[in-house]
């Protein structure tokens, strides 16, 4: 079993939820498929969906909700 990284393609602010009152796209420990959305990046007032890009189990987020990130930063890891 290896760990796969999900990196942010953009710099900006990372959100784990579609809106402040909504549930997280993915809870810690959930499994994800390649096309599933794991969060949003807000860059210069526009929002971009971030898909996992990899499939795996037991997702671990390394960035909190509403935290600034740089391009290439690892947002989460999954087990594959």
């Amino acid at each position: 079993m290896s760990k796969l990284e999900i990196k942010s393609p953009l710099p900006g602010t990372f959100y784990r939820k579609p809106s402040p009152d909504a549930a997280s796209f993915k809870e810690d420990g959930a499994a994800v498929t390649e096309k599933e959305t794991i969060g949003l990046i807000e860059v210069m007032k526009s929002f971009h969906e971030i898909s996992a890009g990899v499939a795996g189990a037991n997702i671990t987020f390394l960035v909190d909700d509403a935290e600034p990130v740089i391009a290439g930063q690892v947002l989460a890891e999954v087990e594959a």
Partner: peptide, 10 residues
């Protein structure tokens, strides 16, 4: 566009 864009009303 690599990501789906939906802009916030700004």
């Amino acid at each position: 566009s690599p990501a789906k864009v939906y802009e916030e009303a700004s």
